[in-house]
Simulated scan of single mutants.
Amino acid sequence: MGGLIVARELSQRDGILLGSSSALNVAGALYAAAKMGQGKTIVTFCCDLAERSYSKLYNAEFLKEKQLSTEYENLASMFERYQAEPSSAVITVS
């Protein structure tokens, strides 16, 4: 759901139309930022735009048909929710 929230928020707020993979990458970067705190540099890739996923990701009828909410939280509340998650929710890969 994070990718859907990021995609919708960025499209409406900034006019940036991301594809589903890019939206998930940005959601992951947002999660990392929430967990790592200030003063860190986080890099992600936008590997696709919305040309292939526009008819689904940005289509309210399609989302409703798939029982995905067209009501979404904003990025600030998503960030706060990520910050509130316990550290045990984070998996460290080494």
Rank of each mutant, 00 (worst) to 15 (best):
A32W: 02
E65Q: 03
S87N: 12
A33Q: 06
P86F: 00
E71D: 11
S94H: 13
I16W: 12
G2S: 15
A29E: 05
Y54A: 01
E51M: 05
A60T: 15
I16G: 13
G39H: 14
Q38V: 03
S11P: 00
A76K: 01
D48S: 02
S20C: 06
S69F: 05
N59Q: 05
E80K: 01
K56N: 07
E73R: 13
M36A: 10
T44M: 02
Q38Y: 12
G28K: 01
E51H: 11
K56A: 08
C47I: 05
V43M: 00
N59V: 02
E61T: 11
S87V: 00
K64A: 10
V43T: 14
K66L: 11
K66S: 02
V26I: 12
E65W: 01
Q83H: 04
N59Y: 03
L75A: 10
D14E: 11
G39C: 08
S69W: 07
K35T: 07
L24G: 15
K40Y: 14
I5C: 14
T92P: 00
M1Y: 15
R81L: 10
K64F: 11
N25G: 04
V26P: 04
Q12H: 13
T70Y: 05
F45R: 00
Y31Q: 04
A84I: 09
D48A: 02
Y58V: 01
L63H: 06
S53N: 05
S69L: 05
A27M: 03
A34L: 08
E80F: 06
G19I: 08
S77Y: 13
T41K: 08
C46T: 14
T44R: 12
A34Y: 09
G15D: 07
V6F: 14
G39W: 07
G39R: 12
E80H: 07
E65V: 08
Q12P: 02
M78H: 07
L24C: 15
S69N: 14
E51P: 00
A76H: 08
Q12Y: 13
A50T: 07
L57D: 03
A76F: 04
Q83I: 01
R13E: 11
T44N: 07
E51Y: 13
E71Q: 08
Y31I: 00
E80P: 02
L17A: 12
E9D: 12
A34F: 07
A27S: 13
S87C: 06
G28N: 06
G28Y: 03
K35D: 05
L4K: 10
G3V: 10
Y31C: 03
Q67P: 08
L63T: 11
F45I: 05
P86M: 00
Y31R: 03
D48K: 00
K56V: 13
D14L: 15
E71T: 15
F79Q: 01
G15E: 10
L17F: 13
M36K: 10
I42G: 06
